[in-house]
Amino acid sequence: MGGGVSRVGRRRRHRGAGGVAAAVLAAAGGLALVACGGGSGNTSGGSTSFSPRPSPPVTASFSGTPPSALASAASSAVASARASASAASSSASARASEFEASVSAETERANAAARKKLEKAQGRGNAVSDVSLTGMPRSETEGLLALHVNIRNATAGKASFAVQVDFRDSGGKVVETRYVGATGVRPGETVHPIVISHEPPEPKLNAVVAKAQRY
């Protein structure tokens, strides 16, 4: 009697131990499935291996540029500024010539004649009060200093005018002199020839009517 009970107990313990082992194996298999197939979407039954990769840094909130890029940008800016400064004088004269190329040949002849007329004028001439200057936007003149010379004929008959415009620095020294003329201006009419400095934009110059002769 006792021997039968012992055998039954041993069979139950054996089955219990086997059930625990089976549960452990099943759990281990489930973990293996999760490790192999998690998030891959691969249903072909083959095994998939992976190795962890470091996440790249989040740069969305960064501002500025790396030190090396800043140094390179600064060097480029300095080089560009030096090149611009060295070419300013020659380019200003070239651009002035190009701008003046749009002026008619008749106007050029009048300007040449104006210089000759002013050589014979006494003092500042007889028409300084009939002439004024109006600056032109540099955006329209390739960055050059250009002005409208406003000449009004206040007499009762047609007249011609010769005007000398001096460009002076901040100390009042004459840096450049240009001439402009207008012929056959009708009574009461105002004409607006253009005078252009060939000097570079810097340092800034002031334009003044030095002489004006009506003839």
Rank of each mutant, 00 (worst) to 15 (best):
G2F: 07
G3M: 07
S6M: 11
H14T: 15
G16C: 03
G19K: 00
A23V: 11
A23E: 09
G29P: 03
G29L: 04
G30Q: 07
L33E: 14
V34K: 01
C36R: 01
G38Y: 02
S40N: 11
G41Q: 02
S44A: 15
G45Y: 06
T48F: 06
T48G: 10
S55E: 06
P56Y: 01
S63N: 06
S63R: 00
A71C: 03
A73H: 10
A77L: 05
V78N: 03
R82L: 05
A83Y: 01
S84R: 00
S89Q: 02
S91C: 08
A92F: 14
A92E: 06
R95A: 06
A96T: 06
E100V: 04
S104H: 02
S104T: 09
E106C: 05
E106T: 14
T107I: 09
A110T: 10
N111Y: 08
R115L: 10
K116I: 14
E119V: 04
A121S: 15
G123L: 07
S129M: 05
T134N: 13
G135S: 15
P137V: 00
S139G: 08
T141F: 08
G143H: 04
G143N: 00
A146H: 02
N150E: 11
N150A: 12
T155I: 08
T155W: 05
T155P: 13
A156N: 08
A162Q: 03
A162C: 07
V163K: 15
Q164L: 07
D166H: 04
D169L: 08
G171N: 12
E176N: 05
R178K: 01
Y179A: 14
V180E: 00
T183Y: 08
T183I: 10
P187S: 07
E189V: 09
V191W: 00
H192S: 12
V195Q: 13
P200A: 09
P203C: 01
P203N: 00
N206G: 10
N206K: 02
N206C: 09
N206A: 12
A210F: 08
K211A: 13
Y215A: 12
Y215Q: 11
Y215K: 02
